[in-house]
Design a protein around this nucleic acid. Structure first.
Length: 588
RNA sequence: CGGGGUGUAGCUUAGUCUGGUAGAGCGCCUGGUUUGGGACCAGGAGGUCGUAGGUUCGAAUCCUAUCGCCCCGACCA
């Protein structure tokens, strides 16, 4: 048990001006965290307890599924990263350690970086330590700080430069084994978030720079989330918007026949979809082609969409480029022969087609029978464009962003979209890292194979804030039982009175022996202050001792989630408290 | 990195447009009265007005630069 006067819980009446969202304000007001700088937070004593509670729950669920805990350094030799498969993409987000003498006689690269994750450390380790199929599978995990030079830290712990993460890495000999490891983690994650009192949904996700074959994200629906999730209640389909597809284009769709000869027509000054859709042209956006130019590993390529659709950039990952970005006007003109706004992909109108790495079309342009597109000539567009007849498509894919209301691919029911916070992400990585680092094992036929890997992350500090974001009211935080910094708050309204203090101690001991963590508010504050603080810090169960009750031989018991207060006879204290604690722990 | 905001006491802020040398609430300290939902009275401490230049007799206020922080977008646990 802990006495309030002997720990440090600096609560605030007003929230600091730089907090915008409920959870961020409450973390500050309840004295759980303090800001050091943008995306850098100190965990105050009570906040640290929550971190430890969440970490312990995570540890238990990882151990249950065969995870093996270890601890790797968070300062990494840069060599590990340069030898790894994603240095080009990852270097931007890494902090470099610039110590005295760094880089002497070497390149400009730093000698060390701060680890954003640990694939580049664990894989070489496993390479040298594990060589036989007999030692597989293995799943190593750790809980500790991670560092990412976030482009824009925000919302307190939600997106921080330094944050606490649980990261796990599985190594398997067979693909089936790797899939099994993946499902174990999926199970562990579901159990973990459940015990945190968080409502999450697992959605299909893009693998991003991590690479790998498939992936799920664990999402907490919340308007302040960074991601959009697309889902359908009828079919159970759910996916990150980056990955989501809709049933907009039926599989057995047949392209419309050509409807007329290509015809160039003047469109002076028209450089947007909207302008071409307006009078006097009146070409509906869904009958226009949108021609986008990207650079993939230094070479331009085209992406063709319907005029009414938006590109989902993450989906370009399917094209196999390491890095891609939008091309600049200067890069576009020599290849297409025109500036953005007048571009098109009609055969024969591209100035230098051999410079292109490809022309990739979104399936949805099949829906255009008689389209209009740019002529690669300023002030000119072309009508009666037919997808099959007129465009030289290299390959087809799904590149457009799904919109709410489009049909679900399975059920045909309208898809819904909601904001969500990503608290966990699991990847089946395959052999991307093991091949690069030479992490191979020998099978029972004396054959050598790269290990099949998976990696699994949980944002511990982000989970903490997600819990607060999901569980609060106008008065403060409402901690779920197992992540509360303490589960029971004993409020002593008369700390100067010996009888009151003795009773508080007795109640605290009863709660503690029933298995709860107890905080005793023994501060010489007025009752109003104590009750306000009690609601603010949000411990699940409150026991109140005061002179009024002492005279009647009672104390009061109140759940943070309830309005009513129940009076309990002091003689029944042990029984009632034990029952309450066990009930809460059992239900949670 | 682009766009938008903002910086005044530990916290919340007024004052900035229209220049005249900084005010309040909360919190803190002292004394007293109070004591079951953020008490009251009296007294007190605390501010290089983010920083650096400039304009001016005079700058929190006007100008320039710079830094921090917050929000929107691309990236991520």
């Amino acid at each position: 048990m802990k006495f309030w006067s002997q720990t440090f819980i600096p609560t605030l009446k007003e929230s600091p001006a730089d907090a915008e969202i409920a959870s961020h304000k409450l973390l500050l007001r309840a004295g759980l965290v303090r800001k050091l700088g943008g995306g850098l937070y100190t965990f105050m004593p009570a906040g640290l307890r929550v971190v430890q509670k969440i970490s312990q729950l995570c540890r238990e669920e990882m151990d249950r599924e065969g995870g093996i805990e270890m601890a790797m350094p968070f300062i990494h030799p840069v060599d590990n990263w340069q030898e790894g498969p994603r240095w080009a993409a990852a270097r931007e987000i890494m902090y470099r350690v610039d110590h005295a003498g760094a880089g002497k006689g070497r390149s400009k690269e730093p000698e060390f970086v701060l680890g954003p994750t640990h694939e580049e450390v664990i894989t070489p380790l496993v390479k040298s330590e594990i060589t036989s199929y007999r030692d597989l599978p293995k799943n190593f995990y750790q809980i500790g700080p991670k560092f990412r030079n976030e482009i824009r830290p925000r919302y307190g712990l939600m997106r921080a430069r330094e944050f606490i993460m649980k990261d796990a890495y599985s190594f398997d000999a067979t693909d089936e084994g790797a899939t099994e490891s993946y499902h174990k983690m999926k199970r562990a994650y579901a159990a973990f978030f459940l015990r945190c009192g968080l409502k999450t949904i697992a959605v299909e996700a893009d693998t991003g720079v991590m690479g790998g074959s498939f992936s799920h994200e664990f999402m907490v629906p919340a308007p302040v989330g960074d991601d959009d999730i697309v889902y359908c209640d009828a079919s159970g389909y759910s996916a990150n918007r980056e990955k989501a597809t809709s049933g907009l284009v039926p599989k057995d769709f047949a392209d419309a026949a050509p409807s007329g000869a290509l015809e160039q027509f003047p469109t002076p000054g028209v450089v947007t979809i909207a302008a071409l859709a307006a009078a006097p042209y009146g070409v509906a956006a869904d009958q226009q082609f949108k021609t986008l130019v990207y650079m993939g590993d230094g070479k331009p390529f085209l992406v063709i969409l319907r005029g009414c659709d938006d590109l989902e950039e993450a989906k370009l990952g399917a094209l196999g480029f390491q890095l891609w970005r939008q091309a600049t006007a200067e890069e576009i003109e020599p290849v297409l022969g025109a500036k953005p706004g007048s571009l098109g992909a009609i055969k024969g109108t591209i100035k230098n087609p051999s410079a292109l790495a490809g022309i990739f079309a979104d399936h949805a342009i099949h829906l255009i029978g008689n389209g209009t597109t740019g002529a690669n000539q300023e002030g000119c567009h072309v009508r009666h464009v037919n997808v099959v007849r007129d465009l030289a498509i290299t390959s087809w894919g799904d590149f457009r962003t799904v919109r709410a209301g489009e049909p679900d691919p399975k059920s045909g029911q309208p898809l819904q979209i909601a904001r969500a916070i990503e608290v966990g992400h699991i990847f089946k990585l395959g052999t991307k890292y093991s091949e690069k680092f030479g992490a191979v094992y020998t099978d029972d036929q004396k054959q050598s194979h790269p290990m099949i890997m998976g990696c699994y992350g949980i944002g511990i500090s982000r989970t903490l804030q997600a819990v607060v974001e999901q569980s609060n009211d106008a008065d403060g935080i409402i901690w779920p039982w197992f992540v509360a910094p303490w589960q029971v708050l004993v409020v002593n309204l008369d700390p100067a009175d010996a009888a009151a203090s003795a009773l508080c101690l007795q109640l605290a001991q009863a709660a503690e022996s029933a298995g709860a963590d107890v905080l005793i508010d023994d501060r010489a504050e007025r009752p109003g202050v104590k009750f306000k603080d009690a609601d603010l810090i949000g411990l699940p169960l409150r026991l109140t001792v005061g002179g009024r009750g002492l005279k009647e031989g009672i104390f009061e018991m109140k759940w943070r989630t309830a309005k009513e207060v129940s009076k309990v006879a002091i003689v029944d204290a042990a029984t009632v408290i034990t029952a309450a604690v066990r009930q809460a722990a059992g239900q949670a």
